[in-house]
Design a binder for these strands. Structure first.
Lengths: 237, 237
DNA sequence: CGCCAGTTTGACCAAGATCAACGCAAGTGG
DNA sequence: CCACTTGCGTTGATCTTGGTCAAACTGGCG
């Protein structure tokens, strides 16, 4: 009760609907799950393909099955900002006005589930637990967006890159190893930097033994010294 | 119906509860209004006073009666970011997790209404229209936060200051005149700049006849050339 | 093999930050 | 009422961070 504008510790009803972090098994699946799965369509996108565009009618939402999706805002003169990366288990296109203000693109090979909004809304209207959960998720999203504004307004390049690495390490499964699916260009547009600056910061971290990279295109990152990495963005807590 | 994750054009139920833009009269006030007004307390704060602090339990929310409130995030080493300015008619402290991640402070003399969360939640639980409306407001807030991330990530100092002026002009009542209640320092912390840069950008706008300032402490801003101002941030649309 | 897309590094540049001085109006206390 | 202080705004000089431009490198792939 009274969970509209606060957070209880309870498990998210949405986790049962394909939005859970991988590895968290949907313990007991309520009836609504069947309905939700029935209304979903499995879609496939290739590297760089657009899932939806700025200006589109927002008539469906998505959850990532596998791969990574980037949420982009393009300025009139070509400057780009990436608002968010969505990994397996994340939802996107959900907390939105009637028209898309941003586009969604596949970073690499991606499989998503697509849920038509009008059907999803009916399920939500019928299920107060889902509705509360949706609200809770939106508030979490808002908190995340606000902490990103602080990062962009006040952190240095070093702190931004360090925060980014900690963020993706925390979201991944392995505590000390990580596959970066996106390019340096994507990371730069996410952090409000240039790809060269991102590169230099990563090189500095490698030089200092904080991280190590391997694999083709340096996509595989090994975390050498988590404390050092956290120390680099401790000001931001 | 089905307004959970989209926007209908209908008037906000919240507007009837002290959250309306000034000037929009609450046409017909439903019964719930009486209840909402009964649970509110009128509070007064002086310039610089803290309304709530980072780390506080979020057990109430607020609407601004008069004056301006700034929502602040303080970093460990003293850097500050202002996430938002709230003017008369705005709500704040509403879309939040259990604990405050930011603080709220009075920019000048401020009167606010304070609503205890547990009582407000009960009203919301009993009133589906209110609940939907709350959700809609949260989604709007999220959209605003996201467009602010783009501003901070990719716009130049000139563009940021121009966007800021347009934003406050659009929120004010008069189309060509405006009172800036906050200091240059506040504006800088909102835009991710320094106060000197804000000052220089404003001086440049004055020099070019886009705006004019008067009054004590240059708080009164006259808009000379709206097209020019909009042109300065057209890239951001 | 040669091309392509992405990464890395270096040299140089510029936007904006920092440091500093001064102006100006509103208190404040004698 | 006036000297003094305080807080904010403005402007200039200089510096630094991160951007821009350019070249070399790397591994994958047709």
């Amino acid at each position: 009760m009274h969970t509209w504008s606060g957070v209880d510790g309870s498990r998210s009803a949405f986790e049962d609907f394909g939005c859970s972090k991988p590895g968290i098994p949907p313990s007991r699946q309520p009836d609504a799950l069947i309905a939700f799965e029935q209304i979903g369509t499995r879609l496939h996108f290739k590297r760089g393909q657009e899932i939806y565009a700025e200006g589109d009618v927002a008539d469906s939402w998505y959850s990532v099955m596998s791969g990574t999706v980037r949420i982009c805002k393009l300025l009139a003169d070509g400057r780009r900002h990436i608002a968010e990366f969505c990994f397996a288990g994340d939802c996107f296109g959900l907390f939105t006005l009637a028209m898309r203000a941003v586009s969604a693109e596949a970073v690499g090979e991606v499989f998503v589930m697509c849920y038509p909004k009008h059907q999803a809304d009916r399920l939500i209207d019928e299920n107060p637990r889902l509705a509360r959960d949706l609200y809770h998720r939106t508030v979490c999203e808002l908190a995340k967006a606000q902490s990103r504004t602080t990062l962009l307004a006040r952190l240095t390049a070093t702190e931004r890159v360090a925060s980014f690495l900690i963020e993706v390490f925390n979201r991944g499964h392995a505590p000390h190893t990580l596959n970066l699916p996106m390019t340096r260009y994507d990371i730069a547009d996410y952090l409000g930097l240039t790809l060269e600056t991102v590169c230099r910061e990563l090189s500095a971290l490698k030089r200092d033994g904080v991280i190590a990279s391997s694999g083709r295109r340096s996509t595989r990152i090994e975390l050498g010294d988590r404390d050092a990495l956290e120390g680099l963005c401790e000001a931001a807590r």
